[in-house]
Design a protein around this nucleic acid. Structure first.
Lengths: 184, 184
DNA sequence: AATTTATGTCTCATTTTTGAGAAATTAATC
DNA sequence: GATTAATTTCTCAAAAATGAGACATAAATT
């Protein structure tokens, strides 16, 4: 199994997203391996966290940029961004948390931050175009819309994992609530 | 200062809401006291957590029930519930998390759970009345609307603490997005 | 000012978490 | 079926977090 490494990372993202300081035992449990195995793959907790962040970063960036490239229509772009973020699941929630923590020191020197910035700029342009068209309420700030976006994604992901409703219905609910919620 | 106890609880709610397994040192720092002082007020971590939960429970229940009692109009009730939850801040976020964790074993024997249930029932009736009136979209489930409610509250609280926009504007944004988002 | 009360400092024992070595066990590959 | 690679089990030492005693200080109360 050359994928054990990845299994552990995925498990760690799920666990750390819920409880950042959770003991590594919990990660091992979630990954269905021993803590000893985990330690063979990662030098220490810090390395694991860093690799989780790199993974989230890569996945979310890729998914979101693909969504942005999927169309010229801002409305279509936004919808696909929302769906992409939901598909990223806990990765997106965590990704957003990391870059918006109170203690997070944002710096364009940091590659991850720079990438995040670029993504945010593209997102912002989509919103501004929609506001210019009058398709999105001009009384809302882009920051609020962005906050709402992340909140709806997190809500959808939680609802899915907690799980009564099917994922596809949830996506439809999410788009309905988000789009109406910003005045579309 | 007979309120040190309460200061610590408030600090702990803020810290644990962000990072449930955070070391108590962080709580002490947030409360601007020593860890030694913290330990004089609380037997152990568990007791602190329990008292945090009791506090959240008391505050959120009181605020939400007051909001529900504030009017006979379901729309007005819902709006006041949203504002009340936002005013509760991190307490509401944490309160919601606790009762919706994957590992939370819900039981009506537990007083907190029973109270939570009652609140949920009252909320549900408000939504059902609005759906009967056709004021809220019938295609959305009450569960989704509830999930969205909590998500919008958390988003607003985060936006506030992270802080560019004033609280009152945020409340207006929150109500706009939530109400439109459920089809009002 | 004297006294009570709460908090801080410094210390220490205990527990939990972390990280890794060594041998046994299981799974994969030849 | 033998060999190699990956994982588990058991163990243990180091580090971090927890909880509390003893005394010094600061504060509130009288």
């Amino acid at each position: 199994m050359k994928e054990t490494r990845q299994i552990i990372i995925e498990a760690a993202i799920l666990v750390f997203n819920e409880d950042f300081s959770a003991p590594l035992e919990k990660v091992a449990d979630k990954a269905n391996i021993t803590r000893r195995t985990l330690h063979r793959y990662f030098k220490d907790r810090n390395e694991l966290v860093t690799l989780c962040e790199a993974d989230m970063q890569r996945c979310c960036n890729k998914a979101m940029n693909m969504a942005l490239n999927s169309s010229e229509e801002p409305l279509e772009q936004l919808k696909n961004m929302l769906f992409a973020a939901i598909d990223c699941g806990a990765k997106y929630s965590f990704f957003h948390k990391v870059h918006n923590r109170t203690d997070h020191s944002h710096s364009r020197q940091n590659d991850n931050c720079a990438e995040y910035d670029d993504l945010y700029t593209r997102y912002r342009n989509v919103i501004l175009r929609l506001q210019d068209n009058g398709e999105v309420s001009r009384s809302l700030t882009t920051e609020w819309i962005y906050t709402l976006f992340a909140a709806v994604v997190t809500a959808t992901v939680n609802a899915e994992s907690h799980g009564a409703v099917a994922k596809n219905s949830l996506k439809q609910f999410a788009w309905f609530s988000f789009s109406k919620g910003i005045g579309i």
